[in-house]
Design a protein around this nucleic acid. Structure first.
Lengths: 194, 194
DNA sequence: AGCATCATCTTGACAATGTCCAGATGAAGC
DNA sequence: GCTTCATCTGGACATTGTCAAGATGATGCT
């Protein structure tokens, strides 16, 4: 649904385009979303997005970056140092899934390196690594002096990462329900960190 | 690289197209693979694939179905009833990742429900559910009479599924190395089933 | 104020793509 | 030998991503 616009300049086209893109990706899939349709929904000409994002990969990368930013906020809000590490990881995983469910359009392009080159977008890279560090930090809290094999903990962190990513992917792809994914991520977290 | 062909009829075009598609997806990504380029690599006209697969979604669905078939073979070969359930699950996960590493083109389209409609392709659905059942069977082996809460085991099975899927996805997306992913899936399997 | 500058957005163009259609080819069955 | 039909070709069309040139108006300078 094209948006009526009185002035020649849009005002906040970048945000409008990102929103249109998120909606389109969410209910049509990445494959079916076109730059021209995104522009159409924002009520601008077909070439307008190019000025803000360069090309299609740029738009999707910006969407992914915004997704990582939203995820970061959700992870920070969910983190709780007062509970045992296992419970903390479970809450982080739950927040991860909740964010994915709330922003399916964003999650559909995050961690899809075939759509764009992450190295070319510093902000995306910054938010993504920040989130990775947040996960590592929680897993690291389960380390004890007598058991701190570096490799074992790296494997645990990777397992937690892969689990959250995989369940979110299955959730966004409508292969699982939210309840299913959340039970699974909680069961996994509880067993990964004792 | 187009293939020279003497006769008008190709002979085994369906297989040739699937192979070209797998190669193309593997090193260019799904987004960058076109039906016309697949046809070009197989040395046929641009409209030839339509006769075998209907449309682009049909070709990708067929590729996914073949991937699930290959995965099924790998899982069956890796399953071992003589080892404890946890070790059996670890081997299944390792086989999952090995198959993903060997057939990156296939795995890039499997579990991507936005590319095609799984319900419209019975063979794909059949192979996919068969693999799911194989996973469930191994997890179910860890059930004991005194501990068999149905919900808990469903959560465990979903966790194992999500972990394998997520790590395979990160592996194919070159976000992780094979060694990283395998260590992670093993660590996860060992802790999920005690 | 008037003017220049420049980011922003539009318009038009081009090659490439997915999909449809009529037709050419040749293998298989009678 | 003839028919039938699956297989593949070639052309067409709408749509897409991208580029180049121009229109618009907000901003800052004098």
């Amino acid at each position: 649904m094209p948006v009526r616009r009185t002035s020649y300049h849009h005002g906040d086209l970048r945000r409008a385009l990102l929103q249109s893109a998120a909606e389109l990706v969410a209910d049509q899939g990445v494959q079916a979303t076109s730059l021209r349709e995104v522009a159409r929904r924002a009520g601008v000409s077909h070439a307008a997005p190019a000025h803000h994002f360069g090309d299609k990969a740029g738009l999707l990368a910006a969407l992914a970056a915004e997704g990582h930013r939203l995820l970061g906020e959700a992870l920070v809000a969910a983190d709780d140092h007062t509970v045992p590490p296992a419970e903390a990881l479970a809450r982080l995983g739950s927040a991860y899934l909740g964010c994915a469910a709330r922003h399916p359009g964003h999650f559909a392009v995050m961690a899809r390196c075939d759509l764009f080159d992450p190295e070319a977008h510093p902000e995306l890279l910054r938010h993504a690594t920040a989130n990775h560090v947040r996960l590592l930090a929680v897993v690291a809290r389960a380390r004890t002096p007598e058991r701190d094999d570096v490799h074992a903990f790296a494997a645990l962190a990777d397992a937690a990462w892969g689990t959250a990513h995989g369940l979110a992917s299955l959730l966004v792809g409508r292969v699982m329900t939210f309840e299913q994914a959340e039970s699974a991520v909680r069961a996994s977290a509880m067993r990964l960190l004792r």
